[in-house]
């Protein structure tokens, strides 16, 4: 079964078309990347799949469930990491992980397992006892990635997971995503404007610009079809041909 099916999805904000009939599918277990510049429509697509906003037309399914009519079921199987996600300043890192875990855990044992997983993924050790307001940007992002993946969602939706991070933190986050997808079979749909990151992480990518999908394929397929050496060059070529 496909993890995500998007068909003719359109979103109009006050007369401005943010998405213009986009269609793509994400296969179960793969890391799928949406790449494009700022304002291309990546966040809007992810927000629709995360049931936060409604499409103007078209439809989107997550493991066969419609994001509009079955939003509460979709929320049970996804975990969404917004680009600028924050955590509650006055809670400690561990309290934040516990807060999120309680929404997913069926019993005490499951709760303990989820939190332990979160502690492991974050790699923040003793600093998890400190309040979130004392964390650096990188630490906050690691906490967010941990809370997104610790619940082992069927679909993890990650919006710019490494944006604004230094090399060390960005490397850590990329490794965690890759490891999690391969070890736990979590399907990952992520957006990025860092083409090299996407080339390294993703099994397949969709290039998006001005609310339209320009091409879809594995990084290798896209490079071959565009006769370029990396996705950055490929993107520029695809955009100029569009």
């Amino acid at each position: 079964m496909d993890a995500v099916v998007v068909e003719e999805l359109t979103k109009v904000y006050d007369g401005v078309k943010a998405l213009d009939k986009i269609s793509f599918t994400v296969r179960e277990g793969e890391i799928f990347g949406l790449i494009g510049p700022n304002g291309a429509g990546k966040t809007t697509t992810l927000r629709i799949l995360a049931t936060l906003i409604k499409p103007t037309s078209g439809r989107a399914l997550v493991f066969g469930h419609d994001v509009m009519s079955e939003a509460s079921i979709v929320r049970e199987i996804i975990s969404y990491l917004p680009e600028e996600a924050g955590a509650y300043r006055n809670l400690s890192g561990i309290e934040y992980l516990e807060f999120i875990a309680r929404f997913y855990a069926e019993d005490g044992e499951a709760f303990r397992r989820i939190v332990e997983e979160g502690v492991k993924i974050s790699g923040l050790g003793e600093r998890l006892r400190d309040k979130v307001k004392t964390y650096s940007k990188g630490m906050k992002r690691r906490l967010q990635v941990a809370r997104t993946l610790m619940v082992k969602p069927r679909l993890a939706i990650l919006d710019e997971p490494t944006a604004g991070l230094d090399v060390v933190h960005a490397f850590y986050v990329r490794e965690i995503i890759k490891e999690y997808a391969s070890t736990h079979g979590v399907t990952v749909l992520l957006s990025s404007h860092n083409m090299l990151e996407v080339e390294y992480l993703c099994n397949r990518v969709a290039m998006i610009d001005k609310g339209r999908i320009l091409c879809i394929g594995t990084p290798k397929e896209i490079l071959e079809s565009t006769s370029t050496h990396n996705l950055e060059e490929a993107f520029m070529k695809v955009v100029s041909n569009a």
Partner: peptide, 14 residues
């Protein structure tokens, strides 16, 4: 303001 709302709204709670 603290950018926690989007996460909260995407959690499995009505």
């Amino acid at each position: 303001e603290e950018k926690t709302l989007e996460t909260l709204l995407s959690l499995p709670v009505s």
